[in-house]
């Protein structure tokens, strides 16, 4: 029965895709925005590329809402040992050397299209999902930390000690490397990442989540309109997380 439901839903969506395809005016320009919801039995596809746009002009120094939400959602808590505590997202305060202009922004895995962590991983535990989310498969991570050496954003953390307070949706444990998953378990349920949700809930509006492959998505429109930056753009990693205002 649930299979039938799945099947009929799949058929319906396939028909929807075909219909939408017919409405394509030019490559990359569609009239209709397809529903995001992907059935549970369907694999993530490369037609989407999830990304985030962070407006540092709206991000206040001292505001930690995104970090707090991430910790709560993913069960990443401080043990009081800051040097070994994992951090999936952190606030960085920046100051331009000459002008003294300061910025505040959240920094996390940038979900590169060409992720160095994936290249260097000896077992293939570090991988990029079809929809652009860079993840660690802890089932085959051996804890060598080579990805941490390779990441230009210091986005990855090694789990230095045992944990037993995992969120059932977010497995994590001693001896493996981990980083921001873009809340993949939420995305698969058609929800926004926890940090973005918290930023909106706090009326800060500094974080925008969406599909970079969809020209009509809010995020794509913003990127097409305003000057945005990729951090360490010199490395040409084509990051999924973009910044505005720095």
């Amino acid at each position: 029965m649930s299979n039938d439901v799945d099947n009929s839903r799949r058929k319906f969506i396939a028909a929807g895709v075909a219909g939408t395809a017919g409405l394509v005016l030019a490559p990359g320009v569609t009239l209709l925005d397809m529903a995001n919801a992907r059935p549970a039995g369907e694999a993530a596809s490369s037609t989407k590329r999830w990304g985030m746009l962070i407006d540092s002009t709206k991000c206040a120094t001292g505001c930690n809402d995104c970090v707090t939400a991430c910790g709560k959602e993913n069960g990443v808590a401080s043990t009081g040992r800051p040097e070994t505590d994992p951090q999936w997202i952190r606030k960085i305060e920046l100051k331009e050397v000459k002008s003294g202009k300061s910025h505040s922004l959240p920094m996390m895995c940038q979900h590169c299209a060409e992720p160095p962590c994936v290249d260097v991983c000896p077992t293939g535990a570090s991988f990029k999902r079809a929809d652009g989310i860079v993840l660690v498969d802890r089932h085959i991570c051996i804890g060598c930390r080579y990805c941490m050496m390779a990441c230009p954003y210091k986005a990855r953390s090694f789990v230095h000690e045992e944990h037993d307070d995992q969120n059932p949706d977010v497995p994590r444990g001693k001896g493996c490397v981990e980083s921001c998953t873009l809340c993949v378990h939420r995305i698969d349920k058609d929800l926004e990442p926890a940090c973005v949700e918290a930023c909106s809930a706090g009326n800060h509006g500094a974080m925008l989540f969406g599909d970079l492959n969809d020209a009509n998505s809010e995020i794509s429109k913003r990127i097409a309109t305003y000057a945005t930056t990729q951090v360490r753009a010199d490395l040409a990693l084509n990051t999924g997380v973009r910044y505005q205002g720095i």
């Binding site: 929809d131 498969d137 993949v184």
Partner: peptide
Amino acid sequence: QRDDTMRKGIRTTQDSLKNCI
């Protein structure tokens, strides 16, 4: 199920560890 969920994002519930638990 683990590989399907981890690698492809397939989250059918029947064979998931969460369902067992």
